[in-house]
């Protein structure tokens, strides 16, 4: 799912300067599930904005609403349409796709993001941590790498094995991070598939990852 991180509240307030009626829009998709931009987070943020306003002695109305998916034009139009006239700026708690969808649907209302969109990730709940798992490169090689993506999980996106920077199984860029290629090697070895990494992997075809992409469905 898409992982986001809340912007500093002061940066958000800076962007809200001069506006009187703010509509906070949460999203119950990825960001809701990860407790980063759901209904509760939208209300929390509204309360924080109210605190900021109190501290600066300003009178600004906040209203929070949450939709199931902000990356769906139809949903955004139907859910927000009836109440949109009552605000002069929208603060979206969704990922970049959600923010842009809202911006496209409501042409004459400014839309600003509450979050920085970071990556496609998976959750390790025990640690309360989200890990990047896929960079959406457009040509998946997980079939050859034991289901572990070196394009994402190796900082150098190597396709043919580890670089010389692997130290005690960890990456040269972060001593806490496992070397993706060591994980792949171990996995392939355990599953008797080591042969699949002995063939040279050709350079990636980045035409499949050239922005902006589209997909007919």
């Amino acid at each position: 799912m898409i992982v986001v991180e809340r912007k500093n509240i002061n940066d958000i307030l800076e962007n809200l300067k001069g506006f009187k009626k703010i509509l906070l829009v949460g999203c119950n998709g990825c960001v809701g599930i990860y407790q980063l931009g759901g209904e509760k987070q939208a209300i929390e943020l509204a309360m924080l904005i109210n605190m900021g306003n109190k501290l600066k002695d300003k009178k600004i109305d906040t209203k929070a609403i949450t939709v199931i998916r902000q990356c769906d034009k139809q949903i955004v139009k139907e859910e927000l349409g009836p109440i949109i006239t009552d605000c002069d700026i929208i603060l979206s708690l969704a990922c970049g796709a959600g923010v842009q969808t809202v911006a496209e649907v409501f042409e004459n209302i400014p839309v600003i993001p509450a979050n920085d969109t970071k990556f496609i990730g998976a959750q390790a709940r025990e640690k309360g941590t989200l890990f990047e798992m896929c960079i959406a490169c457009g040509n998946c090689i997980l079939d050859k790498t034991g289901g572990i993506c070196p394009v994402t999980r190796c900082p150098k996106s190597h396709l043919n094995g580890p670089c010389g920077g692997v130290y005690k199984g960890k990456c040269e860029t972060d001593k806490e991070r496992d070397c993706a290629w060591l994980l792949i090697y171990n996995k392939l070895k355990l599953s008797g598939k080591l042969e699949s990494m002995k063939k040279i992997a050709s350079p990636k075809d980045f035409t499949k990852a050239a922005h902006p992409r589209k997909q007919e469905v």
């Binding site: 150098k156 190597h158 396709l159 043919n160 094995g161 670089c163 050709s202 350079p203 980045f206």
Partner: peptide
């Protein structure tokens, strides 16, 4: 950058 790796 790492468009290529050392093998490539």
């Amino acid at each position: 950058v790492f468009d290529l790796d050392s093998v490539q």
